[in-house]
Write a protein that binds this DNA or RNA. Structure first.
Lengths: 261, 261
DNA sequence: AAGTGGTCTAGACCACTGA
DNA sequence: CAGTGGTCTAGACCACTTC
């Protein structure tokens, strides 16, 4: 019954005692954040292996010359990221599996760029119009208000991947077509000081109409992924509504979920 | 330019001053949690309207007879849920848009039940087998290890919605087919003391093969939504791997994302 | 019984925002 | 400038887990 090495027995990380955390009290970076970053790096580099116990918070705080709440704040941020698990009466240990992305409001442009696919964009349309009923409802504005309507075709390796149709409240952002072609919409919004905070998404599928097929270089009836998304800024105001269609043969959504305790 | 009521000016919630928060120090429920629940209820009932400022933390803590860190902990939990926004130098205010589900590891069964669709399940297969290479890789076990293979057909209103194929490490859970038909897999796991913590998902689409079409009462070539998911428990160990296909005409994924600051 | 994280307190100083 | 949240401290007691 006993297995080699008795992997069920969690050991306090031996490396932790000799790990030198360099905390700079003169830095504007908060102490708990400095500690969290260095713990995260230690986990990522395998210095703290999955299953390792972190050692109790009191010792750790004394050793680091920090108060316990500060150490707890650092640990808590990594628990929120899914890297550590706390167990009362047991200790804090490194999670067993590799966590990749904690979950993001994914930008197609960034996704493709991260995958080394060198995305390109054609802006097919970029003009102001009156909001139709469905767009107005999604953006929480009155029907007929002015919005910016955007239609883009995103490609990689010269092949279409997605057709993106977006609506933004007018005056929220200056949308230069040339810039839109060289970067993503979300990146432009960030640069303009709009910080995205949350989004409501619906992901579905359907068969391509002949028009859609022609646009995406697919055959009519091919399976398409569809996404509708309303994005909100940090005050909860809708700032963007999008209807996207993706060639299912060339794209899929990939993400990590964390369950709140 | 000025609009009626000047909605850009955030007011401290007038109701807050007369709101009586009932804190029970004898309760085993933490004080910060009691406060968070009552704040959330006040927001949900519109007593705290979107845009309302919460009043500063010092006053609030004195008024409630709590320390400031405790009040902060309550507020922070609602910020994490996306209900409140903090702004340094300004205050804490209620988010403008309605947040629905903060984001969950969605269970199809629960989703359908919540939608009042009265889901039913046919267990088509429930037996142990040796893990194939792809299943073993997804579950982080060695190829050939024993796993439980599960195939289920989920219906609403007598119509198929999804075909669910799942694999679990053997001995993790007793999977009674009768019980599986009357509830969801995730609910059974929770009952067995397995707390799901995170999951890695891929959502895509493709056209139905003739076999799939027959199984789901679709026509061959119809668009299907596909999902692959590996779920991890709170120590980060993989506990379930699933390959699901959904009739796109009857189901779509719907969820809320929060961006971490 | 010993050790762990969970909660809570009563202060303090700082950085940022807005008028 | 006054007011806000952001950070930090040095303690305390409790509930839970394990042995």
């Amino acid at each position: 019954m006993a297995k080699a090495g008795d992997p069920a027995r969690a050991m306090t990380a031996p490396a932790l005692h000799s790990l030198d955390f360099a905390l700079d009290r003169g830095s504007p970076v908060p102490l708990y954040y400095q500690l969290a970053q260095q713990l995260e790096a230690a986990i990522e580099h395998g210095i703290l292996a999955p299953g390792n116990l972190l050692g109790n918070e009191i010792d750790l705080s004394m050793r680091l010359g920090l108060s316990r709440p500060t150490v707890r704040q650092a640990i808590q941020s990594l628990v929120d990221k899914g890297l550590l698990v706390r167990r009362r009466g047991v200790g804090t240990q490194v999670v067993h599996s590799q966590v990749k992305r904690p979950l993001e409001l994914s930008s197609l442009y960034d996704d493709l760029e991260a995958a080394g696919q060198g995305p390109t964009t054609d802006v097919l349309r970029n003009e102001r119009e009156s909001a139709t009923a469905d767009v107005a409802a999604a953006l929480g504005i009155t029907e007929g208000s002015e919005v910016v309507a955007l239609e883009r075709l995103r490609c990689t390796h010269g092949q279409p991947v997605a057709f993106l149709c977006n609506y933004l409240p007018a005056n929220i952002l200056e949308l230069d077509s040339a810039r839109l072609e060289s970067t993503g919409l979300y990146r432009m919004m960030r640069t303009a000081g709009i910080t995205l905070h949350s989004a409501r998404q619906t992901i579905g599928a359907r068969s391509a109409t002949p028009e859609e097929a022609a646009r995406l270089d697919e055959t009519a009836g091919a399976a398409l992924l569809t996404m509708q998304r309303t994005a909100y800024d940090d005050t909860g105001r809708p700032v963007e509504y999008g209807r996207h269609i993706y060639r299912a043969s060339r794209y899929a959504f990939d993400f990590q979920l964390l369950v709140r305790p």
